Computed example of a mutant assay.
Amino acid sequence: MKVENGVTASAITGVAWVKARASAGAGNCVEVAELSGGELAMRNSRFPEGPALVFTKGEVAAFVEGAKAAEFDRMTA
């Protein structure tokens, strides 16, 4: 199944949505699912029926690398 950006997350079937253990049930979570084509879908856990964004593994790896390097810290302060 080819999944496009903005598709309703509930339309993505046969995947396991995962959230970080650090979310601790506070409801402020991004959930991620690996798609059959190798891409990663992300959704807001507060709106699981809402849209999903789809990224390549390379795009996600670049974002995670930037987060680890504190490039986005000013946005969460």
Rank of each mutant, 00 (worst) to 15 (best):
F47T: 12
S36N: 10
E49G: 13
S10H: 10
L53D: 09
A41W: 01
E31R: 01
E39L: 00
A52K: 01
L53K: 06
N44V: 11
A33K: 00
E31Y: 01
F47S: 11
A67R: 06
E59P: 09
F63H: 02
R43V: 06
R21G: 08
V64F: 02
A22F: 00
F55W: 11
T8W: 07
R74G: 09
A20M: 05
T8Q: 15
V54Y: 01
N5D: 15
V3F: 04
E71L: 09
E4R: 11
A70Y: 14
G58H: 04
E59H: 03
E39T: 09
M75F: 15
V7E: 07
K19D: 09
A33L: 04
V15H: 07
G6T: 04
E4Y: 03
E31I: 03
V64N: 01
V32E: 01
E49K: 14
F63S: 00
L35I: 07
R21V: 09
G66H: 09
A16W: 02
E39I: 01
G14D: 03
K57G: 04
L53P: 04
L40P: 06
G14V: 04
V18E: 07
G27E: 12
V3M: 03
G38S: 11
E39K: 04
V64E: 00
V3D: 03
V7S: 11
A70P: 00
G37M: 05
G37C: 08
S45E: 15
V54F: 02
K2L: 14
